[in-house]
């Protein structure tokens, strides 16, 4: 019993420290259209990133981008460029910048900034002060995008 409790406490500590290491949205360092450092210090998980990409409530990237790798999903939007071969066109630090806040890379773009928690007007109450994705989800999506080579 004692042992189990200790384990749980350790797990909570680990979770807390991972959380505190994530860079806050306002502190992400953009340098000429790139974000060099990982937002979490943890490697991204491309499998989780693939799910975030398709999920309508998370990335919903398919709303605007076609992606042959996700051909099992119906309805790919075409507002933005196809994602096929995106890793041939952009490096990791550039992709991290695009997913974090595309407006820093493409001026005036329709693409939402996925890791900002302020600077937008009239958010629905439930979303006020929050970012669309967490820091780890951004890293996961970036890791997934890096697999999209032609």
């Amino acid at each position: 019993m004692k042992h189990a409790l200790g384990g749980a406490a350790l797990a909570i500590m680990a979770a807390t420290s991972a959380y505190s290491e994530a860079v806050k949205p306002a502190n992400v360092a953009f340098n000429d259209g790139i974000v060099e450092a990982s937002l979490t210090g943890q490697p991204g998980d491309p499998v989780a990133g693939r799910a975030v990409f398709a999920d309508r409530k998370l990335g919903n990237c398919l709303a605007c981008h076609t992606n042959t790798d996700l051909s099992e999903e119906s309805f790919h939007g075409e507002v933005g460029p196809p994602m096929d071969g995106v890793a041939d066109r952009w490096g990791e630090a550039e992709l991290r910048a695009i997913v974090t806040n595309s407006k820093k890379v493409f001026e005036g773009t329709i693409m939402p900034a996925f890791y900002i928690d302020s600077g937008y007007e009239r958010p629905l109450e439930d979303f006020a002060g929050t970012s669309i994705l967490t820091a780890q989800q951004v890293e996961d999506v970036v890791a997934y995008l890096l697999t999209l080579k032609e």
Partner: peptide, 27 residues
């Protein structure tokens, strides 16, 4: 005027992108 967490204006969809598919919807 852009609004919401997604930070878009009516014009972003209905002026800049009409005729294009946004997921299952034809704008």
């Amino acid at each position: 005027t852009r609004v919401g967490q997604l930070d878009m204006a009516c014009s972003n969809c209905h002026e800049d992108n009409y005729g294009v598919m946004i997921r299952a919807d034809h704008l």
